[in-house]
Amino acid sequence: MVNYHFGRGRARLAPYLLLLPGFLFYLVISLGPSIATAAYSFTDATGIKGAPVHFVGLENYREFLFMGQASRDNYDALLRTLIFCFFVTTIQFTLGLVMALIVNQKLKGVNFFRTIYFMPVILGAVIQGLIWSLFLYPMGGPMAQLIGLFGLESEFLGGQPAQAFAWVMFVQIWANMGITMMIFIAGLQTIPTELYEAARIDGASSWSVFRNVTWPLLTPVTNTNLLLNLIGSLQAWQLFLVLLGYRNGTQVLGYLIFAQGFGQTSGSVTSSFRQGYAAAASIVLFLLVLVIGLTAQTLLKRREERIIG
């Protein structure tokens, strides 16, 4: 006989009733807008209350994917998104792991360094952007003075698009490395110390201990971190807005969606709000995240099963 905690009769409804508020919240805050975005992507919606909304079929998708040079620019933004994702995920993951290994040691003042490394995470994109805008101020800012010692000068965020793009990558990594590190620390602290002691007794070197004990047992948090880094970097847009604004050669898909939806694409004048078109671009980004996320998840799950069983 099944031991059912909530009793019989109407009492069996209790768990469903308890789940319902959360589900309704998810429906209203997350699932609802996602479905609405998919629906909007087939319209010419502007997001302005009262403005007529017309069904335009696949026109927004045709424009985004196939219409003129603008569509080729969109593919460039797509490629840039993938480049951003690759470098940010790789570097942030590696740095997060290295920092976690360092601050997981029993060293003096280690909590102070954990706090320092984690602090950028809590600042928010606007503050992060402001800090780095000031730090990279090309006329006498700290970084300008530093490279000035070597007779160099740079426009930093306002210079060549590739250079500006690289700086946004750097700030993105700086801003989020702390959370990667904390997840790794949590994982490291679940590894039994007996395993390390046994390995040491067997004469294993530090590298062997890492390779054969730490790394395999970190698999669950490794997977979590990789997926979080992948999805977070594919969806990034706030730092592009705060640090660069709408500049040719720097947009990623996330920022392109914002700029199209809120009329930020025409330089000093406001362009039209094209939220139907932006919704179509959102769906394209969603599909990209879905494909990459699912592929990564499948591969990582297989790896986890192989290592941990």
Partner: peptide
């Protein structure tokens, strides 16, 4: 008003030149 489908460089902007542009 730019035509739909026009590329991102379809403007008379000096900022396309180095050091601001490419």
């Amino acid at each position: 008003v730019a035509p739909k489908g026009a590329g991102q460089y379809a403007n008379p902007w000096a900022s396309y030149f180095k050091p601001f542009g490419t």
